[in-house]
Amino acid sequence: MRVSATNLFKLRHHLGALAIGGAALFERLVLSDPVLDASLPWGGLPRGSIHQLEGVPGDTSVLSFAAGLTSRCAGPDGRALWLRLRRDRQETGEPYGPGLARYSLPPDRLMLVEARAIPDLLWALEEGLRCTGFSVALAEGISPDLTASRRLQLAAEASGVTALLVSPGPVRTRSVALTRWRVTAAPSARGVHRPRWQVELLHCRGGKPGSWIMEWDDAALGFAVVPALASRALAQAV
């Protein structure tokens, strides 16, 4: 019997949903690059679930990648919730409006929340995930353990709000996040104003890990994968 690609995709999709106990199929979010979307088993990033992003110490690129992802999740008229720890203010700076403009996050659709301690942040995140007024909730500076991540996942599933959990360094705890990414800076080949990220998909439920160099596409307001060969050739040419 010949199994068509669509059927296989549907089956995977279904199994993915069953694997974490949710009855509904995930609505997916297209990251706008066909190469990237095709390498995720859902054909994009599933909404209504939690995703982890980690950086490396001394490199805040993961935050700009997360901002791009937040913008994709929010779309043209969704609201975003951005949670931070107060003590990170000076360390990583505060979200800066004019810089957010590039990722198409207008001022009236982004709510900023500052917590003093991690338990408060987790509580606020869970409250936010239960509120259908948001499309996406981004939390900086946390990597919840299994129990906490399960709570968050259940809240996200019920409301359909996507949660992005950003950790400044490597994540050491296990969680139920569907995907885990490591983002570092990559030298830009086309000038300072065309940032690039080295993006590694470390963990993906039902999918294979991968690694890409990505750029932010200002016109499409989405991610674009830079072909590995081209990036090297260009980098050498510059």
Binding site: Q90, G93, Y96, P98, A101, R102
Partner: peptide, 17 residues
């Protein structure tokens, strides 16, 4: 206020207080 960000030159995503 429905005012957009006035950006002529690229600005950083994070600003140190």
């Amino acid at each position: 206020s429905h005012r957009p960000w006035m950006v002529e030159q690229p600005r950083p995503l994070r600003l140190l207080p």
